[in-house]
């Protein structure tokens, strides 16, 4: 007997969006492993390819525009060659997703109960009535108060937090092995964010799901993840356990992200920003994609794409100079934001 296959295994995953005007290479060779019951957080700013990667895991990118290549298996299903028919029975049953904006991700003219029940009817072969009953239990599981009444509610009648809870109830309704969460707390108020995170963590532990969580918020990542992977310009630039990455990021971009985050452990230090903006993925990038924004970049950094090199203790980094930089403890000499000065 070989060791059980990982829940998710991706090798050299590429996703590009082809239109008449341009081809956008959104994901350029991502390797990814996730064990059952593990929580991985993919960090990155908008346009880094993190959401596209997540959607690629269940082939949710627009089918007529997105071109996927590489190896990808989820719970034993080969997601690159899978037939549409099989795909539809994997989605929602084996793997399901929570979206960023529950207002637009829920159908406005169907009741919450109906939308949750629909998934159950589809995958568990039960009737509408029974599905309704199960939906009620699910709403109670995600701690929606007066669940019975909320079953008959339409999305616009619920608050943002309740909508996201309903969305979660829908996603976990068939006890998936893998839950994908695309910035599920970004659109919510700060207090509600914490509640949703706590709920997700609790559900993850109760149901033993593998979770991949996409966010640009390091705080969120620290709250919930076992491991963190940082993405930039469609590639992984750093990966490691949450504690390791948060304590000592190896990649200058990861360092920059940490520096730009309000972090309780770093009280008193100045907030920094990463100057510039991510590269335009319509054009080919030569060399390290982060080099134009990197405070440590040398001319050699633009010569070739750095490899994703494994480091000690299950860590990996994509930087030519990570060892040299790691020696220097000083923060990158970036611009200081005015807000940073005002912090205690």
């Amino acid at each position: 007997m070989t060791a059980p296959a990982p829940l998710v295994r991706a090798r050299d995953l590429h996703v590009s969006f082809v239109s008449r005007d341009a081809t956008v290479k959104a994901v350029n060779g991502v390797d990814l492993d996730l064990d059952a019951g593990e929580v991985l957080c993919i960090l990155g700013e908008s346009g880094s390819g993190k959401s596209v990667t997540l959607r690629a895991l269940m082939r949710l990118n627009p089918p007529n525009k997105a071109v996927v290549s590489g190896e990808l298996s989820v719970a034993g299903h080969d997601m690159v060659t899978i037939s549409d028919r099989q795909l539809s029975s994997v989605r929602g049953k084996v793997v399901s997703m929570i979206f960023q904006e529950p207002m637009t991700a829920l159908d406005p003219v169907y009741t919450i109960g109906r939308q949750i029940g629909e998934t159950l009817v589809r995958h568990e072969g039960i009737g509408r009535r029974e599905a309704e009953q199960r939906a009620l239990e699910l709403l109670e599981l995600v701690q929606i108060p007066s669940a019975k009444r909320r079953l008959q509610a339409y999305p616009h009648e619920l608050s943002g937090g309740l909508r996201q809870r309903a969305m979660i109830a829908m996603a976990i309704s068939c006890r998936p092995q893998l839950l994908l969460a695309d910035e599920p707390t970004t659109a919510l108020d700060a207090t509600v964010q914490i509640q949703i995170l706590l709920l997700l963590r609790q559900l993850q532990q109760e149901l033993g799901m593998g979770v991949i969580f996409v966010t640009h918020d390091l705080g969120v990542a620290g709250e919930i993840a076992d491991r963190i992977a940082v993405m930039y310009a469609g590639r992984m630039v750093e990966a490691g356990s949450t504690v390791d990455v948060m304590r000592g990021p190896l990649h200058p971009y990861a360092k920059g992200l940490l520096g730009a985050t309000v972090h309780s452990g770093l009280r008193g230090t100045r907030l920094t920003t990463i100057p510039g903006s991510p590269p335009d993925l319509r054009h080919p990038i030569e060399g390290c994609a982060f080099a134009p924004r990197c405070p440590h970049a040398l001319e050699t950094c633009s010569a070739g794409v750095p490899e994703f090199r494994p480091m000690q203790a299950g860590r990996a980094v994509r930087c030519f100079r990570s060892e040299e930089i790691a020696g220097a403890t000083t923060r990158p000499p970036s611009r200081t934001t005015p807000q940073g000065v005002l912090l205690p």
Partner: peptide, 11 residues
């Protein structure tokens, strides 16, 4: 977006 959700549900 909700059409993507529906596809994600396996409909």
């Amino acid at each position: 977006d909700y059409i993507t959700t529906l596809r994600g549900k396996g409909l």
